[in-house]
Simulated scan of single mutants.
Amino acid sequence: MKVFVAILALAVASVSAGTLRTKDDAVAPKDIQGRITNGYPASEGKAPYTVGLGFSGNGGWWCGGSIISNTWVLTAAHCTNGANSVTIYYGATWRTQAQFTHQVGSGNFRQNPNWPNTNGNDIALIQTPHVDFWSMVDRVELPSFNDRYNNYDNWWAVACGWGGTYDGSPLPDWLQCADLQIISNSQCSQTYGSLPDGILCVSTPNGKSTCGGDSGGPLVLQDDKKLVGVTSFVSGNGCQSGAPAGFTRVTTHLDWIRDNSGVAYY
Rank of each mutant, 00 (worst) to 15 (best):
T87F: 06
R249M: 09
V202W: 01
E141Q: 13
D132T: 04
S232K: 07
S169D: 13
Y89A: 08
S169Q: 10
G212P: 08
Q187F: 02
R258Y: 13
T101C: 04
T118N: 12
A83P: 12
G39I: 05
V140Y: 08
Q176D: 01
D122P: 06
W72R: 03
G213F: 05
G54S: 04
A17G: 09
P48C: 06
T80Y: 10
N146Y: 15
T251C: 00
G91M: 03
R110K: 13
L254I: 03
P116H: 11
P172W: 10
A17C: 09
T251A: 01
F55I: 11
L20R: 04
E44N: 01
D259T: 14
S135D: 12
P129H: 12
D147G: 11
L180R: 09
N119V: 15
S169M: 09
K208N: 13
P29E: 07
R148Q: 15
G59Y: 11
L74A: 07
C79G: 05
N121I: 01
I32A: 02
H78S: 07
V3A: 00
Q181E: 14
G168P: 09
F145S: 12
S235R: 13
I257T: 06
K226C: 04
S14V: 04
F4S: 02
W174E: 06
L221T: 09
V263Y: 02
K46R: 04
L180C: 11
R249I: 02
N154F: 14
P143V: 12
S135F: 09
A28F: 00
Q187N: 03
W62D: 08
D31H: 09
V86H: 05
N206A: 15
Q240S: 03
G242Y: 00
V12P: 06
N121H: 15
F247S: 03
G52A: 09
P218N: 10
G246D: 00
Y40R: 15
I257N: 01
N112C: 11
D138N: 13
I7A: 06
M136F: 09
